Computed example of a mutant assay.
Amino acid sequence: MANPSASDDYFRFFGLNQQFKIDLPALDQAYLAIQKEVHPDRHARGSDVDQRLAMQMATLANTAFQTLKNPIQRGLYLCKLHGVDANLETNTAMPAAFLMKQMEWRESLDEQAEDLPALESLMTEVERSKEDALTEIAQAIDGAKNYERAAELLRGLLFIDKFAIELDDTIAALI
């Protein structure tokens, strides 16, 4: 059965290196292998303890997989593992240039809500900004081991991601 002692580190649980840039196919493979091993149906005839442990391991595998698959959640998790809390609920301070860009995007969305080509162009810009943020986060975590900086970048990425979803919804409504 999967190693419950590795449950304090999702990366170790899946046999992956503790880093931001991970091999997603390897994560998928490790997840499927663990799920196959701990699936409750495989332990239906086992003792109550075996069944409970299998259920706990399946739940842990699901939680760990969802955390590591999502780059924002993975980054926040890595920060947490290294003693840095992003304080998402209380720390909303962002650099002025970042806030200005957010305001520009919001104004563009409001002013061009019916202009599909303009919205698609805005989406390209937002996606590029998201990719740039992901690159910076990878450098902060994997390169510099600067988890405070990574947490700051992740807070910004959450804003970008939220805006991208709103923009995507607006585009979808026009199509």
Rank of each mutant, 00 (worst) to 15 (best):
R52S: 13
Q139C: 10
L78W: 07
Y147D: 02
K80L: 12
I165L: 11
M94E: 08
K101D: 06
A118H: 05
R12M: 11
Q139F: 13
R155Q: 01
V49F: 11
I175D: 08
N146L: 11
S7R: 09
T90F: 05
L78P: 06
G156L: 01
V84N: 03
P117D: 02
I34G: 04
K145D: 09
F163G: 04
T67A: 13
P4C: 07
K36E: 12
N3C: 06
W105R: 00
N70E: 14
V126I: 11
M1L: 11
L60R: 13
N62C: 08
D28E: 12
A96L: 10
D115G: 00
L32P: 00
A30G: 03
K101W: 09
T59I: 14
R45L: 12
I141Y: 05
Q29F: 12
D50C: 12
S129K: 01
F163D: 03
A58F: 14
Q18N: 10
A26Q: 12
A6Q: 12
Q102L: 06
I160H: 00
E107M: 06
E120Q: 10
M123T: 02
D132S: 05
V49Q: 15
N87E: 13
F13Y: 14
T59Q: 15
T59G: 15
W105K: 01
D110A: 14
E131V: 01
D28H: 03
L32D: 09
R45H: 14
L109K: 02
F98K: 06
I34N: 04
L174Y: 02
P117Y: 00
L174K: 04
K162L: 07
D50S: 15
Q102W: 01
L88M: 08
N70D: 15
C79K: 06
F11T: 04
L16W: 11
R42F: 14
R12Y: 02
A173L: 07
Q73G: 14
E104W: 03
Y147A: 06
E148G: 07
E136C: 01
S7F: 07
L116G: 01
R128D: 15
T63K: 12
A140I: 06
K130M: 15
